[in-house]
Nucleic acid binder design. Sequence first.
RNA 1: GCGGUUAUAGCUCAGUUGGUUAGAGCAUCAGCUUGUGGCGCUGAGGGUCGCCGGUUCGAGCCCGGUUAAUCGCCCCA
Length: 473
Amino acid sequence: MQKPSLPSGTRDFGPVVLKRRKAIMQVLERVFVSHGFDPLETPALENLKTLQGKYGDEGDQLLFRILNSGDYLSKAPEADRHDSKALSPWIADRGLRYDLTVPLARFVVMNRGQLPMPFKRYQMQPVWRADRPQKGRYREFWQCDIDVVGADSVLCEAELVEMYLKAFQQLGLGVEIRINHRGLLDSLMPSLGSASAWSEFMVAMDKADKIGQEGVSQELRNRHLEHAVRVWEGLCAAQQEGDFESKLKAFEALAFFKNEDANAQSILQAEEALKKAADELRLLRSLLPAQASVVLDLTLARGLSYYTGAVFEVSPKDERLPLDFRLGSIGGGGRYDNLTGAFGLPDVPGVGVSFGLDRIYDTMEAAGLFDQMPSTWKGILFCPMDEASFPDAVRLAREVRHCGYAAEVYPSAAKLKKQLDYANQRGWCLAAILGENERLSQTVALKDLNEGSQSTVSYDDLVTHLKTHLPNG
RNA sequence: GCGGUUAUAGCUCAGUUGGUUAGAGCAUCAGCUUGUGGCGCUGAGGGUCGCCGGUUCGAGCCCGGUUAAUCGCCCCA
């Protein structure tokens, strides 16, 4: 006999958990729909050609590949059969989707001309990554994405940030939204000297919240980027400024700290990138509620290589969370001006953000937000005491459901203790006990499971009785 | 891909320098009580101590290997 088990990094969602997850998704969906977004679903499987090369080398390693059917090995040349890397393209043509943005880009390209532009869609589906599972990291997890394709206005960024704010407010979870702009980071290029130094700088900088300012400096020194340490320290000084505008001003002053070796052309490009980015950020900030908890984070880089404009990240910031609670971000996104370019359709701008459902759930659980949210059925469990009561119980349950309340008949004439235990476990708030005595007088003994009180209600009065005890059907 | 920790009942875990028949709480079932629960009492069932090998008179405990889970690194939601 084999012990049942689950693939690493995957989970079952039992009734209690799933009801809470669906409650979260309902909140998100209501926000999405209220901003005019339309739903989209795409297949779990995509052609590997669609997925590969979109997430960088690291991302390609994390793609789940699907073995071809049939005698796939015969197609592979003998020379490639002993090297798994060389063999892979011969035996796997499809993979599981890695995120929802690339499938969206594919969909937009395949359906161009038929979609209203700008195309605003939301999508809530699982994605898969062959990552090492850890706390808050799963191999199968759900993303809830909203994207606007075909519009380059900062209005879109502002709308998405506002939806972040609204959604987390409705979920009751305190968050901080950090914003940065790829243009600001690009403008550091002349100061850093080379493209490779720039990207190493990005990788090191992204770890700042984990290893601290000094840790990043150390890492830059380890990578022999002495020059970059000065840029980093300048960046941190700007980051120390309090509000959005002061940070931005400090950064603008910093970016003109240039490497003398840089040529005039690259300096000019950097200045243009900086000006455009700063203008966009100022406009974006002005479109958001003044008191909104949105901060400029000059050290925010975000990994995905396709971002070209504003980038966002959401972190939990809630005093109910344990002090040592760390899960990373629970959402993120940004502007990508050239994603569909990879599918042969250039110049379609897009911007989108993602809600990490699993981490949102884990965070809300850690903050105790589910404790005061017991999922009680608004309805009634019928408890038949003998088999002769089954017909009346079934008929009454039908009437109750017809009026919009939930009802269930316990499927046997088990002991009352057992039936009431079941009712409590399932969260029913009322139990209707129905036995020989009740049947003869055409009544039920209606027990309030929260208060413990009990009253006799006739068959005919049951529905009206429910209406007074269970408002809001 | 690389490290650390852990593995005992359905669940959460005890188990002394290696020593008779491996325990507790919760859960389940039965009875106390033809039909009154969520904090009552009594009892019962349930374990190849992850797996393979080694040391020993004797291994849940020590050693080696292996598998899995978990926490870190890389990277990311």
